[in-house]
Design a protein around this nucleic acid. Structure first.
Length: 441
DNA sequence: CTAGGGTTAG
């Protein structure tokens, strides 16, 4: 029956799959939400009519709902499984676990996973392991993931390189680089070979803490184990050198790359441009940007943002603004960093009216301000105390938590306005907000 | 035969 309707469901499903994949496309996906009840309805109908629906189709539908952050609908499909005489399988549960994580329901995801084991709902496989470990790491529960990894090692479903890499990366990002190094040793002990990605995370972690010698040793280890360095590896090094002010060394890294017949990509050049901008070598940065098209590389919005920042830092706000205007002509969209950088530049040049106009444009374009944007704005408001405090409330309403810089800016403004008493009260109130003053006033 | 995952850089 109803081959047409079945076809329609398949179509809906396929459209979803295409739509959902990327974070940026979430909004787009939501626009298409309306079609889901249709899909559900059709499924319901098909079940009623006794049309054979296979479990593949139901798993696809479940996945679509999950990717749209509608894991509850995913669970509803679970009912259809039984109605249609199917048992949900490991794919179904993996999909649902992922869906719970995507919906920030970490506890429930863990619960479902434990249920799988205790109630033997299905035999977990390597996808289950990776889904749970990945979900925990992304939710910031690195240590839970770490412990779980240790548990899995003792069972028959061994974690493999992706699971280890994820945990190692999270440990590094959470500043537990030594633990990450130990985990590397352990995975090798367990017969799992780390790959370039695994090492890249560690190199980055070590560089972030200025552990150059350790990073160097690790790279030697990579070479010894015949694990090739890739564009990521080199970019990490370029970035690390630049951030430490060693631009010459960063240039050398790019040089080495080319000697090894590897083409630096957009990220590599952007990183170097950012480095030049940070140390004030703005002309070199500009030359590099202009050379990119000739190398077949299209500068990204981040490339432009870095250079705009460089011009602003040099006090060349006019030049920064010219570049800012070029961005749309290149078919690129401003992001929150571009706007905030330009805003900061205008304010520091005393061009407050233009800054506020830019902020309005940002809102029109529906680019969501972040903490840095708000701090920049507060700084720009200067002595306009009432406006500053109302902005403070706006940011809290938007769910953006003020940090120590926010209050530093506010206190600075209060002092300049001669409201020393208010400033002092605000300062003394910081510890109760869980903030530690970092400078003496 | 069809479905679920997938780690790193600006």
């Amino acid at each position: 029956m109803l081959p047409k309707e079945a076809e329609e469901v398949k179509l809906v499903v396929e459209v979803k799959v295409e739509v959902v994949v990327k974070e940026e496309e979430k909004v787009n996906a939501k626009l298409k939400m309306k079609q889901y009840p249709v899909a559900l309805y059709l499924f319901d109908e098909m079940c009623k009519w006794g049309t054979p629906i296979n479990e593949y189709t139901m798993n696809i539908v479940t996945n679509c709902y999950c990717l749209l952050n509608r894991v509850d609908f995913g669970f509803a499909i679970l009912g259809s499984f039984f109605k249609c005489g199917y048992e949900p399988n490991v794919t179904t549960f993996n999909t649902l676990i992922k869906g719970l994580f995507l919906d920030d329901k970490v506890i429930e995801a863990e619960k479902l996973f434990k249920k799988l084991l205790t109630l033997k709902l299905c035999e977990p496989d390597e996808v289950t392991v990776l889904t749970v470990i990945n979900g925990l790491c992304k939710a910031g529960h690195t240590l839970t993931a770490y412990d779980l990894l240790g548990l899995f090692e003792k069972t028959s479903f061994k974690p493999y390189v992706y699971s280890y890499s994820t945990v190692i990366d999270s440990l590094c990002k959470d500043r537990m680089v030594d633990e990450a190094l130990q985990l590397l040793a352990k995975m090798i002990d367990n017969g799992i070979s780390p790959n370039t990605v695994t090492y890249n995370s560690l190199v980055q972690g070590l560089c972030n803490f200025g552990r150059w010698k350790d990073a160097k040793d690790l790279i030697s280890e990579m070479v010894d184990h015949k694990i090739s360095l890739n564009a990521f590896t080199f970019s990490i090094l370029v970035d690390a050198f630049c951030k430490d002010g060693m631009v010459k060394e960063a240039e050398d890294v790019v040089e080495i790359m080319m000697q090894r017949n590897m083409c630096p990509d957009v990220v590599t050049y952007t990183t170097l441009i950012d480095g030049y901008s940070l140390v004030g070598q703005i002309d070199k940065a500009r030359k590099l940007l202009d050379s990119m098209p000739g190398r077949g590389l299209k500068p990204s919005i981040i490339t432009y943002s870095s250079l705009i920042n460089g011009y602003c830092k040099k006090g060349k706000v006019e030049e920064a603004w010219r570049l800012f205007l070029v961005v749309p002509q290149k078919g690129l969209d401003y992001n929150v960093v571009t706007y905030t950088t330009m805003l900061h530049g205008l304010f520091s040049a005393g061009r407050f009216a233009e800054g506020l106009k830019l902020f309005k444009d940002m809102q029109v374009q529906q680019v969501i301000p972040n903490l840095v944007t708000y701090n920049t704005l507060l700084n720009g408001l200067n002595k306009q105390i009432a406006e500053a405090f109302s902005l403070l409330h706006v940011m809290e309403d938007q769910g953006v938590n003020p940090n120590i810089i926010t209050y530093g800016v506010l206190i600075h403004g209060l002092c300049k306005a001669g409201k020393l008493e208010t400033a002092r009260n605000l300062f003394n109130g910081l510890p109760s907000k869980g903030l530690q003053p970092d400078v003496q006033i």
